[in-house]
Write a protein that binds this DNA or RNA. Structure first.
Lengths: 211, 211
DNA sequence: TATACCTCACTGGTATGCCAGTTGTATATA
DNA sequence: TATATACAACTGGCATACCAGTGAGGTATA
């Protein structure tokens, strides 16, 4: 639970505006416009803008203005590549440790829901469970640095995740099968196989973005 | 070249203070003392503090104060693990692409300097070339996301890199051999071997920190 | 008309004053 | 003396006034 400071609130609200598309890439912002929009002074807003710039959402130029950055296809592909590096490592590590009963059942329940949403062809719900699946595995690997990075890229990823599935309706079926296979490899302690499958899985997503 | 703003200067100077040890973990800071120390107003200093907090160097608590965070052994080990994930991926990727002549000669020159410093047992210089070696490889992999992460962890790493070599004088010899072998694998297109060696190389560093 | 220039409204950057919350200490009270 | 309380000296959070730089539009000039 972050401190209920205005600067935190500003950051969250502005990110929400970005993720919901109310503020789109290419838009020009100004601190003073945001003052009216968020009903707070420039100080917390500036802090939030600094963070958003570090996150890569916007770009500030002294004496000029603030531009909302495009999440280019190229950038998205880079993120997928980063995920390949992190998550293949993660599943490999998990294969060499013993998952707790609780952890196993969390994944199992997640997978059964994935299966259901595949059958119902419920893409939005599946997308949520997909993200949760990856997120859980990363959490289990118990490395705060990696967890933090994952959270940093998660939001930008949300901007494109829907696109991946929109571009290919069969994707969620394959995705589910991949997830299941990865988890089975982990349980059997087959780190190399789990990593390879995860790499392939994410490579698929990356390719869709880069025709 | 970043804009020569005060907030950028504040960030750089404060990071320098942290890296040189003038400000040590456990120290208590306050915005107002830093105002005198850096001779600027609270505004750019607050901005810099926000960044340093995101970097993990300090922790701010509203109405209380600022504490310089300890880079725990555990945290350092996490960073090494993150490096394993990123850099094994990087060298694997490099093995599957063609390095330019220029890139090859950059590494070759770096390696020859490494060799020289090993022979002279010049640990500080070797440490620099070591960091440069890893940095260059990451740069060649041409993924801005990964490059950014590497830069973020680089500074924290510097706080412990010296320690790794201090704990084991034979380390730089082995390190050099590892580097050389990794590069040879890359040139031969042996991605798996390069990645495995890199993993082993970094695992060695991690283990030294965690007896 | 074409061009040079000037003005003015805007930008983010910076300095600073005030606020509420926290904490250690000195004082009043039992 | 032990404890409760009040106060004072801090903290970071926030609002805001002012600054220099920028760029667009109008105006004066050729």
């Amino acid at each position: 639970m972050p401190a209920p400071t205005l600067k935190e609130k500003a950051y969250q609200e502005m990110k929400k505006l970005l993720l919901t598309g109310e503020i789109k890439p290419g838009d020009f912002l100004s601190e003073r416009t945001l003052v009216e929009r968020l009903d707070m002074s420039r100080t917390p807003i500036r802090s939030a803008l600094d963070r958003l710039e570090l996150d890569g959402f916007i770009k500030q130029s002294p004496q000029q203005g603030i531009v909302v950055q495009e999440l280019s296809i190229n950038k998205a592909a880079e993120i997928y590549e980063l995920r390949k590096a992190l998550e293949s490592f993660v599943v490999n590590k998990l294969s060499n440790m013993e998952l707790t009963k609780q952890q196993r059942s969390i994944i199992e329940e997640n997978l059964s829901l994935q299966k259901r949403y595949v059958e119902e062809n419920d893409i939005p719900q599946f997308t949520l469970k997909d993200a949760e699946f990856h997120h859980q595995l990363i959490t289990f690997a118990d490395n705060e640095e990696i967890i933090d990075i994952n959270e940093q890229i998660q939001d930008r990823l949300n901007l494109i995740a829907v696109k991946v599935f929109k571009l290919d309706d069969q994707r969620i079926i394959v995705s589910y099968d991949d997830h299941k296979e990865i988890f089975e490899h982990i349980l059997k302690g087959q780190g190399e196989k789990a990593a390879a499958k995860m790499t392939e899985h994410l490579e698929y997503g990356r390719r869709i973005l880069m025709p």
